[in-house]
Structure formats: structure tokens, C-alpha cells
Design a protein around this nucleic acid. Structure first.
Lengths: 310, 310
DNA sequence: GATGCTTACGATACCCGTAAAGATA
DNA sequence: TATCTTTACGGGTATCGTAAGCATC
């Protein structure tokens, strides 16, 4: 049994058991992949893959159980690399942060700025992605830190920490009738065509729920992936916008007006998520501390250690 | 990085960094061991061992951290072997139970008997050892299941489950003055020379505490490792015995008499201990169930998963 | 001088990639 | 037929053990 064989097992499971792809992904020949699998099965004395003729279709029962352990071993083998780098180049290395548009655009810039000042030698990779991709990047080890409002809490292998909370607000063109009301209601909002986030993003679920609970059926004329797009279409007069309030900048968005409405859509909490068991360089902890002073290394480590379900 | 290198690192730490011993323990040459260490250090780019000239003295800081991960990886690699065997030979294999004398002699025989009937093909190794050796055998993976009254609860890497509770009793030669009293007191007991367990064994701590709290200073004329020795010396008239009540058999110990005294020394709980993260064959769970019907596989697995500190 | 680590070196085994052949869709 | 897997084979490399050379105690 060697690490290459384990990598092959994992990669095969990830790539739908297409050994040609596995070979490419691991920069080796397909025949070698095939032989490694055979060798491992021979050594262990168990069929790990379900075969139909020559094609691999999936994992057998022992294969499934084995995969769980293999993933752990490879995670640890990766941890060794990180750990060792931590000592050889203390403030040097790479940190990959993956965040949704909203976070990358409005919450993280100041953190990134601070971080770059403190750790000029760390190569910070900021990756923008949707909630699901954030989860998969954290799980696969491609990313060290994930920042998002959705989806993170449900994944057992991730541990997430509350970063900050925020509210939605309504954005209208300057001089819009809504801006002249003393107090706006949900019903007022629902009377206009709406431009807001796409489903599964940035608290869209809470927006839908608020309208549904009020018995309203708003006309959502556009679902955007980010606030910049929302603002653009509001400016064009396509409708009024509902978006995260911190995405509004009085200076830059002079043609628009923000109408606070914290009470309608509830509070949203953005989380910082980490893969349980993934070794973090010390500067990764510093990054998290910069996000929120409450999340010091001790706190985060404690959270990670507390429960690590299989 | 390969598994042999990791095994060498672990073995070096266990064998006081004597590479010659490591070579012998792993059935390979000392020179190979030396080279493997050098290769790994080169690959990782970090010194893992503290050296004085050519001698290895210990681990460096990164070496210490690495060892933790290495232990985990090797534990998992061993788990793979067990897991696979589980499927190839479901009711065949080896189960190593390590227990103190008291448990091996008085509590486990019926369990072992039942188990052998149910799993005739499983090679059951019952190993007798002191509490500390039980801990180390569990930690090193030499044993699958440990049974003891002491020491198990304090080790973080072990998880232990209450097996049964028992009490101490006084054993005297037949016709001894104590046996004629209506009710005996601690003071009565302390008036005679005592034969009981060695320190750190079978609830000896509770015996000492009971006397101390009563302000008594008994004369312990002999500390034995097991009840059979205690009984032997009580028969010889060396003193009166204090031992686990289940070690007394009216049939076999006809020359002796048991005086119950549950109230004096408190209850003792014997535990079944497992190494967290150690894969157990299904028949290992059956063994535990035979010990106590409350400890079914689900319960034990849940306990193991619940918290797994680093 | 005894023990323990390193280096050198040759034999062996292992790993990898090319290529051909067989299976599957 | 195109895609995919297995098997065979040769070159390269890694691993292992013996033996010699040095440190350490």
C-alpha cells in the first residue's frame, strides 16, 4: 500500500471511476492507474470496485468504507506538507480564501488589505464562487478558508464560525415614489417589480419567506448573482432592488437611494468556514482574526477540535 | 513520503531514537532506516530530529507536530487492514483482549466461553497485564479491547465504557473472631494485619482512602497482585484479606469465609476501554455486547465518535 | 573498544509509460 | 467505431542489505 494508490482510489471516486481521467488528473498514465488498483486489491485481498466487464461502475461496500479512511489519510498527508512549511517559512506561503461575490466585494477588501500589509510574503489567493463550490473547495482542500452566508452550516465536515450579521435593504432610483413615504411596508415593496439575488444566494431564501409569510406574491423581474448587477438594473429603471445594505455606497451610487428595512427580511449571518482536520498555517489564523477579533486562534482551534464526526 | 518512512519516524520516537533498534523492530537494516530519515527530511525540507553529532536525541518542534499526524495516519493504515479483513473473513481473525488479573480470572471467563462458542474461528488472545500496560497496549494497537478498573479513564486517546460495578469484601479463615461479630466496623478490620492488593490495582486506592478518612492506620503486611495470592496468605494465617468479593468462591474456598462490607470501601467500576479511532471488527463489538448487554455496537460507536480530541 | 550513525555500492524489486490487445458502449 | 480497460514489456528509479568508515560514549 502506498500513497499513490490511495490518491488513485480517491480520484477514481471523484471522477466517476473513469480511470483515463484519473490518470490525467494525477499526471500519470492510465495503465499505471489500472495496475495500481489491481495491486492494491490483490494486496488487500478484496474487490474495491464494482465492475461490469472491464468498466468500473462504483465502489463495493468495503471500498466505500475504505474511501472514508483514505480521505482521512490523504488529508493528513496534506497536513504534513502544510505543517512543515509552517516551520520552514513561517510568514511565507499560500492562503486560499474562497468567498461569495458579496463577501469578496464588500466585506473582505479591508481584511485583505490589512492582511497583505502584515504578511507581504504570503501569496493570498482570493477566489470567488457560489456557496456549493465554496463547500467543495473546502472539502477537497483547494481552499483554506470559506466565507459565505449560505450552505456552510449544513456540511458536517466543515466547521463554521459567525463572522458578522447584516440586513437587506431596498434600493430605488433617486426620487422614486417609495422614497417619499414616511414608512414603507412589505406591501409597498411588493407593488413594484423587483430585482434581487438569485436563489440560494445572499439571503434570497429569507426574502422569499418574508413575502410568502405576508401573503404577498412579488414580481421578481430579475435574479442577479451580485449587488452590482442589481444596482445597474435598478438604475435602468427595471424595478426596485433588494440587496445587502453594505453593498450600497452613497458616494459611488449617487443615482440611487437606500431605504433601510431591517425589520422585513430578518438578519443574515455570514460565516467563516473551515474544513475539519485541515491544518491551517499560522497566518490563516491571523486572517480570521482580522475578520473578527472574536475569532482568535484559540477559539477557532477549540471549535475545530470539539467535535470531529467521522 | 511513504509509509515505511512514517513507520520509521514513529518507531524511532518509541525506541528512544536508537535507529539500530528501529531497524530490528521493523525487520529491516539500520542503514535503510538512516537513509529513510534523511530522505524524508530532505523531501520536507525540515530537520525532524535533534542531533548531537551523529546521535539522535529527540524530535524537533516540527518533528513533534509531525509525529502526531504520523500516528494518525498509521492508525488509519492499520484500520484499513482490519476493515478489509472484516469483509474477506467476516467471522475469522484475531481479537486481542487485555485485562487485569481480577477481570481475566473472575469476570471474563464466562464471556470468553460464550464468545468462543459464537465465533469458533476467531483467534481470541487474552492477555493479562497491569493497568499501565493495558493503556499502552491499547494505544499502540497491540490490543483491541482493554478491561480494567483503574487508569483507563484518565487517558484522552482512550474511550471507556462502564462494564460492571463491584465491592470489596473481607476474607478471613473459617472461625476467625471477626466472623462471630454481629456487625463489623472499619476499626475491627484495621485491628488485624491485612493482606490486600498492590497499589494502583483493583481499587486499592479506595481501600486506603477509607482507612485514612476514618483516621485509621492499618498494618498491611502484604500487597498482592491478585486475589488468589491474597487468599493463599489468608489461609496461611498471615492476616485477613480485603479483596474483590467476586473473587471468592464458596465451593473452592472452603477454608475461608467472606464477610460482606460494601459500605466501607465504596463501589468500584470496571471499564471496557478502546482506542479512539481504532477500527474494530464486528466480532469485537459482539465481545463487548457479551460483557454487558447495555453496550451494544451502536452505543459504543456513538461513544467513540462523540468526541475525538487531537 | 563498544555502540551507533552515515555513506558507498551492488542486487533486487517496484513504478512508470508505451504499445498492443480485448471489452464495452 | 470510439472509448475505455487490461496486459505485456522495457527502461528507469527507489529500496534494501552488506560492508566499510566515522562519530560518540
Amino acid at each position: 500500500m502506498n500513497f499513490q494508490q490511495l490518491r488513485i482510489i480517491r480520484e477514481a471516486a471523484r471522477r466517476n471511476f473513469n480511470l483515463t481521467e484519473v490518470g490525467n488528473a494525477l499526471f500519470t498514465s492510465q495503465s499505471g492507474v489500472s495496475k495500481h488498483i489491481k495491486d492494491l486489491e490483490d494486496e488487500l485481498g478484496v474487490e474495491l470496485f464494482v465492475r461490469k466487464g472491464k468498466r468500473l461502475l462504483g465502489l463495493t461496500e468495503p471500498g466505500e468504507e475504505l474511501l472514508v479512511i483514505v480521505e482521512r489519510i490523504l488529508l493528513d498527508s496534506n497536513n504534513i506538507k502544510n505543517l512543515v512549511e509552517q516551520y520552514s517559512k513561517r510568514d511565507e506561503g499560500q492562503l486560499t480564501v474562497v468567498a461569495t461575490h458579496t463577501q469578496a466585494r464588500y466585506a473582505l477588501p479591508q481584511v485583505v488589505h490589512e492582511f497583505k500589509k502584515s504578511f507581504p510574503k504570503v501569496h493570498l489567493k482570493l477566489h470567488q464562487a457560489g456557496p456549493d463550490e465554496i463547500v467543495s473547495m473546502l472539502l477537497s482542500g483547494e481552499a483554506d478558508i470559506g466565507v459565505a452566508t449560505e450552505a456552510l452550516g449544513e456540511v458536517v465536515k466543515l466547521d463554521s464560525f459567525p463572522y458578522y450579521t447584516w440586513h437587506h435593504a431596498v434600493v430605488v432610483p433617486k426620487g422614486h415614489p417609495l422614497s417619499k413615504l414616511q414608512a414603507i411596508t412589505l406591501k409597498d415593496i411588493a407593488a413594484y417589480p423587483l430585482v434581487t439575488y438569485h436563489e440560494g444566494l445572499t439571503g434570497r431564501a429569507k426574502i422569499d419567506r418574508a413575502f410568502a409569510e405576508a401573503g404577498l406574491n412579488p414580481d421578481i423581474v430579475m435574479s442577479a448573482l451580485d449587488a452590482d448587477v442589481i444596482k445597474t438594473y435598478v438604475e435602468l429603471g427595471m424595478g426596485i432592488g433588494i440587496m445587502a445594505s453594505m453593498a450600497f455606497s452613497p458616494a459611488k451610487d449617487g443615482d440611487l437611494q437606500l431605504l433601510e428595512c431591517e425589520q422585513f427580511f430578518g438578519a443574515n449571518t455570514t460565516y467563516i468556514a473551515l474544513r475539519r482536520g485541515h491544518y491551517l498555517r499560522s497566518f490563516a489564523y491571523r486572517f480570521i482574526e482580522l475578520c473578527s477579533s472574536r475569532l482568535d486562534e484559540k477559539t477557532v482551534r477549540a471549535g475545530l477540535a470539539l467535535e470531529c464526526p467521522e
